[in-house]
Design a binder for these strands. Structure first.
Lengths: 229, 229
DNA sequence: CCTTATAACTAAACGCCGTATATTTATTAA
DNA sequence: TTAATAAATATACGGCGTTTAGTTATAAGG
């Protein structure tokens, strides 16, 4: 006859599962994520989790979307902390926030941009909205630089037809922007990701405070290369 | 009394295990690596592998060292294919070879520079020799550029004391070079790694042939920024 | 030639894991 | 009060890395 609502000892079990998952990821790394371990900590049985996530990959996808959202919040907040007319100031704020977020949540960063879960591949259609949003801060500033005629892209490689299509989804969720701006954003993203991912993975020698200096140097390089004046 | 040597149906089982491991990694990705699956394919039992590797991590370490060696061979071959006096030509050859190797062996690239194995962390002391050698091609060319006075590093961040120590091991295995050259090499490495890792992980929109153009653009940027004349 | 030490293997088991199936429990509308 | 059903448990399967104990084949020493 009816359709009961939800009750429970734990009020919002769906959220509690994600919370415990993040706690385990922070402590033992993403690859160590285990439904059974989560269930143990919540004092439920492992199959109970399947009422909230159809399988482990779905949980991981939910975590990735949350991580993208957290990352995107940080990016947008950094952008909006600088006055709208100070475009280079916004650029720098975004760049600094990128690394700071990554150093604060290295496991989340690797969850998003690495491939730390055995056999897991993120379903593009589910993840893309939050992913594109997280990069929209950078894209929007570059687009405004372009509109202001401050984007220095004289010798930029010509964008080819086959390559334009790949950006359509990005534009849909990341905000309307010229494909040139999207491409420049991608290049900038690749540069900061290069340093940050090596740093987080421990593939660079211990940099100490010089890590900051090197990162700032790269940000200055980007400014000089891509921004006029 | 005695100490038997080795026999067996499979002559060099240690190598055969690694061969099958690479086959599985190429086909299903590094995270899917399984001792039992390797054993099945070799028609032995899983514990037999423990005669050749004390545990799965040791096998992974051996694979990583092999991958670094393959990668380093490719880098050194690219360097030596250009005449010794053509330093910018050698730089470009190394840069192109970097991406080509990564695109040819994406799973190996992720095995080295990603963190694809659950709970695995590479033992630095074992891996560093082959790792440093793989970057020695780039380092050597930059060092020669520096010695020739062609390295443009006016505004380069000052290297701090605490940070010098981290490079000692690198220098030991990667060839003697000024710390300035090592730092520039690191920065260049971070840039190419940024693009290549995003590309391999599928985090960039499909670039088609524009992938080549963008990569070449970044290589040109590096040339213009760091090399005089 | 035959014993004996031992490297290299197999058999079996342990405790993990994700997940499917069947069953029980608790809630709630009719 | 009853019937429907969401949400949990109980149980089980096959996979994993790894440990332990036992077997087999080899080769040197007497």
């Amino acid at each position: 006859m009816v359709r009961p609502t939800q009750k429970k000892q734990i009020p919002n079990l769906q959220q509690a599962i994600k919370d415990v998952a993040w706690k385990h990821i922070a402590k033992h790394g993403a690859p160590a994520l285990s439904l059974r371990a989560i269930a143990r900590e919540l004092k439920i049985t492992a199959p109970a989790i399947y009422n909230y996530f159809p399988n482990r990959d779905a949980l991981v996808t939910a975590l990735i979307i949350d991580a993208y959202t957290s990352f995107g919040d940080s990016q947008l907040a950094a952008r909006d902390a600088a006055p709208p007319e100070d475009l280079t100031g916004r650029m720098n704020a975004i760049g600094l926030a990128y690394r700071q977020w990554a150093l604060k949540y290295p496991q989340r960063y690797q969850l998003i941009f690495g491939t730390p879960i055995p056999g897991y591949h993120a379903p593009l259609m589910e993840v893309l909205p939050s992913a594109a949003r997280s990069l929209s801060a950078l894209v929007s500033v570059i687009e405004q630089l372009r509109l202001a005629g401050k984007l220095n892209v004289k010798s930029f490689p010509k964008v080819q037809a086959e390559y334009k299509g790949g950006f359509e989804m990005w534009k849909k969720y990341g905000g309307e922007a010229d494909i040139l701006s999207l491409t420049v954003a991608m290049l900038i993203w690749a540069r900061v990701h290069g340093i940050v991912s090596l740093e987080i993975a421990g593939n660079l020698p211990p940099l100490g405070t010089s890590g900051d200096d090197l990162y700032l140097y790269e940000m200055k390089s980007l400014n000089q290369q891509f921004i006029k004046e």
